[in-house]
Design a protein around this nucleic acid. Structure first.
Length: 403
DNA sequence: TCTGGGGTCCTAGGACCC
DNA sequence: TCTGGGGTCCTAGGACCC
């Protein structure tokens, strides 16, 4: 069996790049995607567009994506928009348009499949592609195949991407980031020591902030340091499972197969409030928001054809502490009222002393809704009506509208 | 002016059953 | 009455990823 040849393909500044296709006059300027609606460009009478500037933003949103021009100013994903505004006050702020990004996501994935059919979806803007069986792919270590992927994506979307081609997913993921944007990086096993070991351990997909800090405390900074650490040390510090994995990862070993299909495990909806809410003083607002989330969750379940057996709530307090409460129901459901009732039960088990900044609802233990269930769902009263009548039945002034 | 929203996987303890 | 193992389900929290 020939050695595998796996590509990781990552779209460059995906959301921002899609926006630049729509607003080409923004090309070359720092542009930040994030925040809610309300700062969409306004078409002027003279045909030009007026854009919102980051300096005028007020709120609790974070940067979703930024163009490379904005990144050069220190703006990066996850940064609070207020902080970003301090760094790049003249950057253009655009609201996220996920429908449009999903459309381009489908386009680039279709294009990739015309080059190589064996694809693993890793979210809206990245995928793994198995190039092993591609004719000639082994010969030049996949350079032609990698370039073919990039060409196909560009032809279909006008967007650039970065590609890593290596013997496994772990290494390809690292490599696709080495030459961004518009990169193509190939790597063979013999080059791991020279090209991977000098990189920071945090470049490994699966080594996050907590692990990085712990590694640093142990004097382990680079992937090479990690590879040089004794297996015994890693096992004692990180446990059997994660320790073993860290050791293998540092040596570039990764046998994970391509996963071409997966069923969802949970579906959820959550929202952060404009201002922190008080469980008593803002009881009705809180109850209404929770109801709305349940209605949306029920809608998501129905649309995607799933029912859930475990309903959970998630709360984030003003100190950023998170608590969750789960309730497993006797029957599967995708009904907004049943979900709302379960969420209310969950909420009762939390001490609501601190102010809240976020509430969420989740449906887990999912199963495919049967055709008959789907039919009965569509026969049920519309969700909005269910919600209104529910509010009317118990009054809006309670947290437990459906108890 | 700190810190969104949607996910996955892992761990660990307790209940309960055989 | 005590001891004990294995297995599954449920719950809560945490790390991590896109």
């Amino acid at each position: 069996m020939p050695q595998r040849l796996i590509a990781h393909l990552d779209m460059d500044a995906f959301y921002a790049s899609v926006e630049l296709l729509r607003y080409p006059d923004l090309r070359g300027r720092p542009v930040v995607i994030g925040g809610g609606r309300g700062h969409a460009p306004v078409e002027q009478a003279d045909g030009t567009r007026r854009y919102a500037l980051l300096r005028h933003y007020a709120g609790r949103g974070v940067v979703t994506t930024a163009t490379y021009e904005a990144r050069a100013l220190g703006v990066h994903s996850g940064l609070g928009l207020m902080k970003a505004a301090a760094l790049a006050p003249d950057a253009v702020l655009l609201p996220a348009d996920f429908d449009e990004y999903r459309r381009y996501s489908r386009l680039f994935k279709v294009a990739v499949r015309t080059v190589a059919p064996l694809v693993e979806d890793r979210g809206i803007d990245e995928i793994y592609v198995d190039l092993t069986e591609l004719p000639g792919a082994q010969g030049d270590r996949g350079r032609a195949a990698g370039q073919a992927l990039k060409d196909a994506v560009y032809a279909a979307t006008g967007l650039s991407c970065s590609v890593g081609v290596t013997p496994n997913k772990l290494l390809s993921k690292i490599c696709s980031e080495l030459d961004k944007p518009n990169g193509l990086t190939l790597l063979s096993e013999t080059e791991i020591a020279s090209r991977i070991w000098p990189l920071a351990a945090s470049r490994i997909n699966g080594v996050g902030p907590k692990t990085t800090a712990k590694l640093e405390a142990l004097g382990i900074n680079s992937i090479g340091d990690l590879a040089a650490a004794s297996r015994a040390t890693l096992l004692s510090e990180f446990g059997q499972s994660y320790g073993t994995w860290l050791h293998a990862a540092a040596h570039g070993r990764d046998e994970r197969p391509m996963v071409t299909h997966r069923e969802p495990k949970s579906i959820s909806r959550e929202t952060t409030f404009v201002r922190d809410l008080h469980a008593v003083r803002d009881k009705s607002a809180l109850g209404n928001i929770l109801t709305e989330l349940c209605v949306r969750l029920a809608d998501d379940l129905a649309r995607k054809g799933y029912v859930g057996k475990t309903i959970g709530v998630k709360l984030r307090f003003d100190d950023f502490k998170v608590v969750t409460r789960d309730l497993t129901l006797p029957e599967y459901t995708s009904d907004a009222r049943a979900i709302r009732r379960a969420a209310g039960q969950c909420l009762k088990r939390v001490a609501l002393t601190r102010r809240l900044r976020l509430v969420g609802v989740r449906a887990g233990a999912l199963a495919k809704a049967k055709a008959t269930d789907m039919a009965s769902h569509s026969a049920a009263p519309p969700l909005e009506r269910a919600k209104r009548s529910a509010q009317k039945s118990t009054g809006p002034n309670t947290l437990s509208l459906f108890d």
